[in-house]
Nucleic acid binder design. Structure first.
Lengths: 248, 248
DNA sequence: TGGGAACCTTGACTCAGATCAACCAGCGAG
DNA sequence: CTCGCTGGTTGATCTGAGTCAAGGTTCCCA
């Protein structure tokens, strides 16, 4: 990594926007105090690589704001996104030396980092952290398995609809609105990143986006701003039951 | 579930074949004693469904012997395998009511089960269990992501070669042999299950198996018994570096 | 103010893998 | 012994998505 943009950001954990959703969610005040001592913030610009696969990783951390992707690459250059990191998501694996994936910021991003050693030690003595991390990891595993169904068995159109419905649903919950009535959101991904996510080419993504627009499933203002007039319809196109059973 | 085959099997944890690899791996003797009190064994026949997706699950447990699959199904019947459960793997999710996937025994199988409530309570008081489960879940997440690359970006031939190399490698480690020299193993899956795993049709699986045999990458004795004369060659066919970096 | 450079769209053609279909081998039950 | 069934193979054909190629939009910076 040539030059990280390392603006000196600082913030009390108590004011942290991801306080109640990140690894530290269950920590009580003095656990938080100890974390506060070992944490530091790092900022990344859109497009910047946070970690290269194989690099030695001496920290772990949480995404505070912005979005990053986890991608795997084959020798011949084919790539597959294997994770999408949103605010509060955890980066890095306690107990592992090297990074297993490339982590790339797709928007400007801020991370709350902990040096790995002290964090691991703290984890051993603080069940709250290990418990929360287990919960988050189980959720990620569920998401990964959902995604495997998408990659393995869905058509291009269904894949696109699935991705849009994930983003739309997340957006709706963030804004504390239900999935009734039209949903409006901005795509945080380029067509290429969408292709990478879905195991498609960017041309196919583009074509299927156009097709969904033509068929009235979505409306597009510009390339990235999306309106979903009928969420149930989108779910049908995704091949999910229209009542979409999000368990957690 | 109509009628489980419930042979009265019993075994001391200290003699358990998966003692050092399952969730209980780190437990000391009195933790083990407490687990021993709440555990019970269940047997399943090849082909039997252990749990249906959506069912209420009142237990969690470990696979002791045999193999099971985790599969997701769409309304129209398309299915994708999302997990392969081998001895020592954990089934069920603490803190969740319903099962998220179908679990099917593909060979005769024995499970060591714990009623969910007592197990969850014990987990809260026993960091050793939560820690081990975290570790196992992180490994599964890695495996799931590896698999996403296979599903999203590999050709049919590469997919088959990838699956074969996973099974071959696991088999070699179980028998404490390296990946030098010819490897011999039995496929624990039907062609249909392989197709399900890889997001292919069984016809394509069959064709690619024949192609790999024709090209000398594998040898087949009968339908299921496989010999890999040159593991490096198989890795190349899988699209991985031939030195295959298993980190853990 | 005009030339790049990202990013996106669309068209024509190709091809890997799906689909449809016939057939084979082994095996347990009557 | 042979019927029927499960699991597997192979062939012919079709098709969805990839590939290659040509533009179109923005937006930035010289």
């Amino acid at each position: 990594m040539l030059n990280d943009t390392m603006k000196p950001i600082s913030q009390a954990c108590s004011d942290c926007p991801i306080r109640h959703r990140a690894v530290c969610a269950r920590c009580d005040t003095d656990e938080l105090d100890r974390l506060e001592e070992m944490k530091y913030y790092r900022s990344f610009e859109a497009g910047q690589t946070v970690i290269w696969s194989g690099d030695r990783m001496d920290f772990v951390g949480s995404v505070v704001s912005g979005i990053a992707t986890l991608t795997q690459t084959m020798e011949d250059g084919r790539t597959q996104m294997v994770g999408l990191l949103l605010p509060s998501d955890f980066v890095g694996r306690p107990g592992r030396e090297g990074a297993a994936y490339d982590v790339v910021a797709t928007t400007d991003m801020v991370m709350c980092c902990f040096r790995k050693k002290p964090f691991e030690q703290m984890m051993e003595r603080t069940p709250h952290i290990a418990q929360r991390l287990l919960e988050m990891t189980l959720d990620e595993l569920d998401a990964a398995r959902e995604w495997m169904l998408v990659l393995g068995r869905k058509t291009a159109r269904e894949k696109i609809a699935s991705l849009l419905s994930i983003i739309a649903r997340r957006d709706a919950t963030l804004q504390l609105r239900g999935t009734q009535g039209p949903l409006v959101f901005d795509l945080p991904l380029t067509r290429e990143a969408m292709a990478d996510y879905l195991g498609l080419t960017l041309e196919t993504v583009s074509r299927q986006m156009s097709a969904l627009r033509r068929d009235g499933v979505i409306e597009l203002q510009g390339k990235r701003h999306v309106t979903v007039p009928d969420f149930g319809r989108l779910m049908e196109e995704a091949g999910d039951d229209s009542d979409g059973g999000m368990l957690v």
